[in-house]
Amino acid sequence: MSYNQQAYAELQEWKHRMSRKPNLAGYLSKAAQNRINRIIPEKVHVAITATIKKMVQGVLYGAKYISKPHPPVTDLMARETEIMQRIKTYQHTAAAEGGITGAGGFLMAMADFPILLGIKLKMLFDVGSMYGFDLTDYKERVFLLHIFELAFSSRQHRRQVFEKMQHWEAKKAALPDDSSQFDWRAFQQEYRDYIDLAKLAQLIPGIGAAVGLVVNYRLIKQLGETAMNAYRMRIMEP
Rank of each mutant, 00 (worst) to 15 (best):
G118Q: 09
V127Y: 00
Q189M: 10
N34C: 05
L28E: 08
Y90G: 03
S180K: 15
L213C: 10
L144I: 04
A209P: 00
Q160Y: 07
I147W: 00
S19E: 12
M123Y: 03
E163A: 14
L145A: 09
Y217H: 11
R79N: 10
E149N: 11
L145K: 08
E80F: 03
K53P: 04
G212L: 03
R185E: 12
M108Q: 13
G58N: 06
R158C: 06
A201E: 06
G105C: 07
K172T: 06
K199S: 11
R79T: 15
T74A: 08
D193L: 09
E13R: 13
S153I: 09
M1S: 14
G212K: 07
G128C: 10
S67Y: 02
I115L: 10
Q33W: 07
N216F: 00
Q57T: 15
A173E: 13
Y61T: 15
L150G: 06
L219G: 04
I235G: 00
A201F: 06
G208P: 04
I48P: 00
K21G: 07
A78T: 15
L28I: 15
V215T: 08
R17Q: 12
G208W: 03
R20N: 04
Q189S: 11
K64D: 13
K172G: 06
R158Y: 00
G132D: 02
V215N: 02
E225P: 01
K171Y: 03
R185K: 15
H157N: 12
M55C: 03
T89R: 08
Q181A: 14
R141C: 06
K54M: 07
Q189R: 15
G224P: 01
K139P: 03
M18D: 01
D183Y: 05
P71F: 05
A210G: 12
A151C: 04
I204F: 03
Q188W: 09
M228I: 15
Y138D: 10
D178T: 12
L11Y: 02
S29C: 05
F187N: 08
Y65T: 15
A198H: 13
T81I: 07
L28N: 03
L24C: 05
H167C: 05
N4L: 11
V142N: 05
D196W: 07
L150K: 08
N216Y: 03
M18G: 00
V215D: 01
K88Q: 14
S153N: 09
Q188L: 05
V73W: 00
A209E: 02
W184Q: 07
K15I: 10
L60I: 08
G224Y: 02
L135E: 04
K164N: 10
K15S: 08
R232E: 05
L135G: 07
I66A: 06
